[in-house]
């Protein structure tokens, strides 16, 4: 999509500028302008060509978009919490269920505001500030929350972007296909330290990921 748009608009840019330059030099300094009648046929032709080119970009664009928003079925769910000014992550633990949260319960020891009354929260795994490890070739569904203002989790290589909006949960998903170290930066202005809100992300093979996750303390363990 990006390539096609770049090619079409690039050609249009060059073409218009060539025509512009040619006209500007060809028709300068002449004694008198020639009389040119309006030409509705020419205008209609141009209208048609333009509409066509636009459609050529739009239609595949919409199809591509439908893929972007189609959720993967087999997926690893990770919760991402934006706060001024760092990224925190949460895995649901053994039971696969995230414990209930409430912004009012957030403290420096409980950055997600996990409700202690909810038993499903005890085995959750919380990573404050990162880094985040992800298994390669495994579709990942990120669920975003924010405790304060808008943020946006932006990893250029993953090509997805969605705001973390306080009060709601937003989602995006992708499948990392290459192992390596990546970085998430914040792409929604969130106050004076917006530019430092980065976090490291490691895409590793499944075994290494499991190992990393198993070594992390659960919420219950961390409290002891």
């Amino acid at each position: 999509m990006m390539t096609m748009t770049t090619v079409i608009t690039g050609i249009a840019f060059v073409a218009v500028h060539l025509v512009l330059a040619y006209f500007v030099f060809r028709y300068s300094g002449r004694q008198k302008a020639e009389h040119v009648e309006d030409n509705p046929r020419l205008e209609r032709t141009l209208l048609l060509i333009t509409s066509l080119l636009i459609a050529i970009m739009l239609v595949p664009g919409l199809f591509a978009y439908s893929q972007v928003i189609a959720k993967p079925s087999d997926r690893l769910v990770v919760e991402v919490l934006g706060e001024q000014w760092r990224w925190n992550y949460r895995f649901p633990g053994e039971d696969g269920i995230f414990g209930r949260t409430d912004v009012r319960l957030i403290t420096s020891d409980n950055v997600f505001g996990i409700d202690p009354a909810d038993p499903t929260g005890a085995d959750d795994i919380v990573i404050v500030g990162g880094p985040l490890y992800l298994p390669v070739n495994q579709p990942v569904l990120l669920q975003f929350r924010s405790k304060d203002v808008l943020h946006n989790f932006w990893v250029p290589e993953f090509r997805v972007k969605i705001d973390a909006v306080p009060g709601t949960v937003t989602e995006s998903w992708f499948t990392p296909t290459r192992e390596g170290t990546y970085q998430a930066a914040c792409a929604e202005y969130c106050g004076v330290a917006h530019y430092v809100m980065t976090s490291e992300i490691h895409v590793v093979d499944a075994a290494e990921f499991e190992q990393w996750l198993a070594a992390l303390p659960t919420v219950a363990q961390a409290q002891e």
Binding site: V16, V19, L20, F23, V24, Y27, S28, G29, R30, Q31, K32, A33, E34, V36, N39, L42, E43, L46, L47, T50, S51, I54, M57, L58
Partner: peptide, 23 residues
């Protein structure tokens, strides 16, 4: 993307105004 169409038409018309003019 539809709004690009009238904008493009204006651009063509500016180019065609220069065409054969006495700039």
């Amino acid at each position: 993307l539809v709004v690009a169409i009238p904008s493009a038409m204006k651009t063509y018309n500016w180019l065609l105004t220069l065409w054969k003019g006495s700039i």
